[in-house]
Write a protein that binds this DNA or RNA. Sequence first.
DNA 1: GGATAAACCGACCCACGGGTCGGTTTTATT
DNA 2: AATAAAACCGACCCGTGGGTCGGTTTATCC
Lengths: 195, 195
Amino acid sequence: MQRMQDTGLRLFYTQGYFNTSVDDVLKELQMSKGAFYYHFDSKEDFFVQIIQTNLTHRMYASLIDPIKSHENPLVRIVKCLEDNLETAVHNELDFGCLLGNFIAEFNGRNETIMKHLNDILAIWEVSLVTALQKGKFNGHLDRHVDCEAVSLYIISSYLGIRTLMVGTAPSAKKYRFMSQLKHYFKSLEARPITA
Amino acid sequence: MQRMQDTGLRLFYTQGYFNTSVDDVLKELQMSKGAFYYHFDSKEDFFVQIIQTNLTHRMYASLIDPIKSHENPLVRIVKCLEDNLETAVHNELDFGCLLGNFIAEFNGRNETIMKHLNDILAIWEVSLVTALQKGKFNGHLDRHVDCEAVSLYIISSYLGIRTLMVGTAPSAKKYRFMSQLKHYFKSLEARPITA
DNA sequence: GGATAAACCGACCCACGGGTCGGTTTTATT
DNA sequence: AATAAAACCGACCCGTGGGTCGGTTTATCC
């Protein structure tokens, strides 16, 4: 069962959902169609279940939990994104951000699936906002910072760079991206009292 | 011919390439298969031609030409992106950035098509870098600014926000995004000589 | 060990998808 | 008007894709 979902997610991620057939998944698993349709109502149902368990777990593990801390959120976020980009650089078969790719693939095309993807996105966003607000309270961020906007900007740029890094020179792109992210973050820091 | 490509691009954009059949395009055009395969070798060839003409034109018109100017590039870029986002907000059937969506869909899955998409991406990036460098020369940007990195960061965030805006509250997202972009840009401006 | 259900198998169904091809209409040329 | 080339038609091919179903194996419980 775990194996089915792992394999399914891997194939959907690497080849795209519409470009991956149930037979593809079955071949990889050496499993019969009967077994598959005994466990899942349809290809879509299969994918929804993958999202709810597998994809959600991965998002928590890589992008949500790592920023939960009482330290300076800007520092935590930088480290978290840096780690994720570094992993991507060293991953031979990187195809971008799991969540980002699926959102791009299903945007406006499948309401059911988008609902589940948006749920994860919302959790991610909220966890960022929460971390930033805590940082404001703790004096790490300037009090004029718009946490929702910053959160959105971070997610946007991250989804974008993950897509762009699939192409050539991922490592160089990672450095360039991180340099600008840090630059941007510096402008969010609490201003010295000397104003 | 123009109609064929326009329709093809529209369908591939709104439904995705893999999720759109040649028959779909034909039905929309009220055209026979024979006519289609008289003009194009294959579905892929059809798409490549669309990229080379139609998609390229649109990219120039919306994101490349508008930033070619002798004014302050930061101002130009802000206005250009703002305009594009505003158009997206008012477009009932917006599905994200044309180029960005296709890149996400074909990343690592079709070398031929990716080559063409990357060509456009490279042109866009170069035009941004050029504009920024000119801005540096003209004293609009701080001389320590890494133009390649800034350009990459802009593209990343733009591709990301376009994807996110397909969901709910595009207008609110646009404002939040723009506010942070401007914030970031402020940190790139030439420092007052008082340093 | 017999009964019952859960888990699984794979042949089969049928619509769809990309692509072909023999033939017909349209257009341009002389 | 004759001719040839360009443009077009749509029936057809065949592999694929999602999904079904009658039957078989495997676990479970008494």
